[in-house]
Design a protein around this nucleic acid. Structure first.
Lengths: 144, 144
DNA sequence: GAGATTAGACAGAGAGACTGACCATCGTCA
DNA sequence: TGACGATGGTCAGTCTCTCTGTCTAATCTC
């Protein structure tokens, strides 16, 4: 079966490249206290705050791990925890202004890298890639 | 910039799904002592053996980490270390027969999952995906 | 050959992830 | 309405992974 690298590996390579670029750019911009694991959780926080359990589920880690990472993000000033008005048990993790700044910096690099990819692939291929991946998500993302 | 999820995230989701499927299938087939980190290194070992440094470079971890993981794979009987006839300093990590069995089991699941994806996407889209990812690899894999 | 480089191992430390136990609150249904 | 299972979250302990730093042996370069 000499089909070359598997699609799985081929998906991984650009993903890792993107992640590394974003993390490096964040560090460059002064957000040098964010780790990869923290960023993976941070990325999932919605504009109106997100519950810890939801973060854990989406990032596919345990509640404990998510809590551990949120602790660190909180200590570093990127997020804060507040009560959830809809549920007394729950607490909402919200992004602070410092967190927003980091988020903006990250979005900028993401756009930049995607533009590089589009230049390399051509816009037709890039669009098809995005669309195909969205379809693939339907059967690979339990949290879609 | 309401472009939905980034391409980076969209790449990650099916990759993670594939990885999880393979690991689960390996455990099912009796190879239940392999961890994700070990598998990521194991995956890179070539048929004629591979040097530790090369494994580390491809997996993008330090030599120490690669050595640590190879230690475990060796103890579990999946690989063995031997001398490298071409370089007295180096040692070649080779796959044992147990390792080959695991590799075969993994390849089977990979093929199965890829077939599922192809059924969902259609063969035209699946082929285009593979081709596009190969092109993307040119600029995202320093080790291509 | 001398010196720089490379392959790899050893030691120690920190981060990340898990399991298990626990408490408080919510939702349901008798 | 109140008992009980389910859910959100925390605390404690452990194991795996990964890194930095240091070291030896072998190779390569001049």
């Amino acid at each position: 079966m000499p089909s070359g690298p598997t699609v799985g590996l081929l998906l991984f390579l650009p993903y890792r490249a993107m992640e590394a670029r974003v993390l490096a750019a964040l560090a460059e911009a002064g957000f040098d206290d964010v780790t990869l694991a923290q960023a993976r959780v941070f990325q999932r926080i919605g504009p109106d705050g997100t519950r810890l359990t939801d973060l854990a589920e989406q990032a596919q880690v345990t509640k404990q791990t998510a809590g551990f990472l949120v602790d660190q993000l909180e200590r570093a000033g990127y997020v804060r925890r507040g009560p959830d008005p809809a549920d007394g048990r729950a607490r909402l993790v919200r992004i602070t202004s410092r967190g927003s700044a980091a988020q903006a910096a990250a979005a900028e690099v993401v756009a930049e890298v995607e533009a590089e990819w589009e230049r390399h692939l051509g816009s037709r291929r890039m669009g098809a890639l995005r669309e195909t991946l969205l379809r693939l998500r339907e059967i690979t993302d339990p949290y879609a």
